[in-house]
Every structure is written in C-alpha cells, then in structure tokens.
C-alpha cells in the first residue's frame, strides 16, 4: 500500500515513463509529418496544445498515421495498441495543455436525456452527419463520416477537439451534459439494437434510396407480375 504522497509520486513516475515511451513512438511514427517536437511541418499541423483527446481520437480510429494525401484522411484499421495510444497521448499532452481523454462517466448512458440529445443533434450535428448519423457530403470530395458503430468515447473526443474539418464543440458552448445527451440519442437511433419499426431502413438516407427502391423493387415486381398476367398460357403439344 502506498501512502497518498507515495501514490502521487508513483503516478508521476508512471506518467513520465509514459511520456518517454510516447516520445519514442512519436519519433518513429509521427515526427516525419508533425516535426520532431510536434511543432508541425508543411505535411502536418502542429500538435502543441491539441490535447490527449485529439490523439486518442485520431490514432484510436486509425486516421493517424495518415497513409496518403487526399481530400480527407479516412478511418482505417488501428495500428497502435490502446497502451501505445495512451503513451502517445501523454507525450502530446506534455507539449501543451489541451483537452484530456474523457472518463467513461462522461459519455456513459446514465443521466442522459435522449430527447434533448435528439434536439441538440438536429441543431449541431445533423446538417453534416444526417438525421441519425449516417454521414453526408462536404465540399470537394470531403465528407462527414457515418457515426454508426463509432465508440462513444471517440464521438465525445471528436466533439471536443474538432478533428480535420469538423468544428469543435468545446464545453463552453456545448456542456458536458449536452454531449452526453447527444451520445445517448445516437445510441438510441443508430445502433445495432435500434428498432426500425417500418422494416428495412434503406440506409436511412431518405427519399433517394426510397425512390430507387420503389422503382426497382416496387415497379419491378409489378411489371414482372404484369408479364405473367399477359403472357400466353402453354399450348398443348400438337401430335
């Protein structure tokens, strides 16, 4: 058992150990674009002050390390383990103060108001991510990704830090409770357990997919039926 002072001491040691490990990982995986001290280069922005939350989001969703230049850096399979991500985050956080990785009670479902979250989502998020978070287009090939199956922690971090072209929604303008409500709403309307009472949701994309469905399967089926109704019945073989 540690005494409180010892505990703090031990935490600090662990922290500086993590920063050292993170620095090594950074030098190998990130420094070529973001500069040796995180000051940024022409290939990548400065990471001073972006905070641990930004690192956890970018690396935790596989967006970083980026593979190739393009309109937007896409989500990819994650390269680092969570322990390594934490070390990287600790190192970046040590470069300048920024938002920390949120604890689970911040994005957990307890105490969340789903309906309020829906209203907030429609006001702040739906314009890019669609009514229920199916994603949408931005200018020149950029896009707002689908929020399906995204870890609530990453959604929280994205709101907090504003990755790539997404604006940030800091606690000053969107309270922690607001963020919690939004995440609870998304879980209610866009998860594997969401009930779609009417049947197939057709991608949740609205009238375009509905129109295609009506043409292909609706009218298609009816034309197939019409062909049967109007076709000639098989004749008896002439003998």
């Amino acid at each position: 058992m540690f005494a409180p002072a010892d505990k703090a001491q031990a935490d600090e040691t662990a922290q500086s150990l993590a920063i050292d490990e993170g620095k090594k990982l950074y030098a190998v995986g990130c420094a070529s674009c973001h500069g040796t001290g995180g000051q940024g280069t022409t290939d990548g922005p400065s990471l001073v002050g972006v905070g641990a939350a930004a690192v956890d989001f970018q690396v935790g969703t596989g967006r970083m390390p980026a593979q190739q230049p393009g309109a937007q850096v896409p989500e990819k399979p994650v390269v680092y383990s969570q322990a390594e991500i934490d070390q990287l985050a600790a190192y970046i956080a040590s470069l300048g103060a920024g938002p920390a990785i949120p604890s689970e009670e911040k994005y957990g479902p307890e105490g969340a108001d789903i309906a309020k979250g829906g209203e907030l989502f429609r006001n702040n998020c739906a314009q890019c991510h669609n009514f229920t978070g199916k994603g949408g287009a931005l200018t020149h090939g950029k896009y707002a990704p689908s929020l399906e199956d995204v870890d609530p922690k990453h959604i929280y971090e994205a709101m907090l830090t504003g990755p790539q072209n997404m604006p940030s929604f800091p606690d000053g303008t969107m309270s922690e409770q607001n963020k919690k409500d939004i995440i609870a709403y998304l879980d209610a309307v866009n998860s594997d357990d969401t009930v779609e009472p009417g049947g197939l949701s057709l991608g949740g994309l609205g009238p375009v997919s509905e129109g295609l469905f009506a043409w292909v399967f609706g009218l298609g089926a009816l034309i197939a039926v019409a062909v049967w109704v109007a076709a000639r019945t098989a004749k008896a073989k002439k003998s």
Partner: peptide, 26 residues
C-alpha cells in the same frame, strides 16, 4: 418489409435546423 419516410427519425420541423441529404421524393 421496407420503411418509408420514418418521420420519427427525422424529427419535428424547426426552420433553424436541417439534415444533410435533404431531398424531395423522386
């Protein structure tokens, strides 16, 4: 089998809110 116009997922109208992919029927 297939949902059409799930208004519950779309939400009530407010002139200051919108969703991407705003299209009319075909």
């Amino acid at each position: 089998i297939a949902t059409i116009n799930p208004i519950w997922a779309i939400g009530p109208y407010r002139p200051d809110m919108v969703s991407t992919g705003a299209q009319p029927d075909w």
